[in-house]
Design a protein around this nucleic acid. Sequence first.
DNA 1: TTAACTTTTACGTTGCGTGAACGTGC
DNA 2: AGCACGTTCACGCAACGTAAAAGTTA
Lengths: 144, 144
Amino acid sequence: MAMRTLASGELLKIGQVARQSGLSVKTLRYYEDLGLLTPAVERSRSGYRLFRPQIFNRLAFIKRSQALGLSLSEIREILEIRDRGELPCGVVKQRLRQKLQTIREQIHALEILQLEVQSILSGWQEHPSPDRIERTICPNLQTD
Amino acid sequence: MAMRTLASGELLKIGQVARQSGLSVKTLRYYEDLGLLTPAVERSRSGYRLFRPQIFNRLAFIKRSQALGLSLSEIREILEIRDRGELPCGVVKQRLRQKLQTIREQIHALEILQLEVQSILSGWQEHPSPDRIERTICPNLQTD
DNA sequence: TTAACTTTTACGTTGCGTGAACGTGC
DNA sequence: AGCACGTTCACGCAACGTAAAAGTTA
């Protein structure tokens, strides 16, 4: 029966965190590199990362924010505010408003594109005239 | 009065091509690296790229295809077919049909996202309860 | 001579995936 | 001693942008 080392009762290694969070080991290391996990990770004497269970709250927040369109650097900015003890909700709201705007713009741009591709396909000439073939790559894409 | 070297009458240097095409010098070099320009470029004795005027047709095709959502590797594939003397229109059409499909999927995904962000913002709690603050980063983003 | 142009090399961007080569733990 | 697990490089992707250091010249 082995003695339990120090106060390592609740600490998890990276593989366990990966399995329970659904993120890959590589992703977790990458997040730590970016400074997203800092306050919830220490190292064992041999260099292993040891995660406190509160890491799962952090990871859930990261996943949720990412799914809503926030970049990892925006998420880091938010987490830093939280780690200072402040409430980052103001920044979060602001970023989400921005995202909503860019989402609308992206949808609009894609709808325009959709119409353009559709019109090209519906006007497609299966057998273009020989003189056009010489000067273009595919005549159906050239407006001239 | 300088003698005209060989048949270099119509050849353009990269800066001129950049200005006339609206692409940057860096972009042109990058395209050549990818093999997109191969048959329309040679080198002078001192190593300068020399472009034939037909390069503008190529660049126009690349720009147009890119604007329609084709990747540079897809475009290269199409140009290679053309350079073999064949008509790439079949492949172009096929790719455009695929793009149309992914455009629709992207629009759909963005619309879902739009709804989700909107609902988060409309249900925003400016002052969350203190017990929730402890366990979350920003309570407005946590479903629990 | 200089200004303006060109060359190659190499790193930064975003969010990781994919090894390589090697140390740790049970 | 073996095998799963951990570690740190370091490169790959997409489409270029941004210097850096050096050679060319319509």
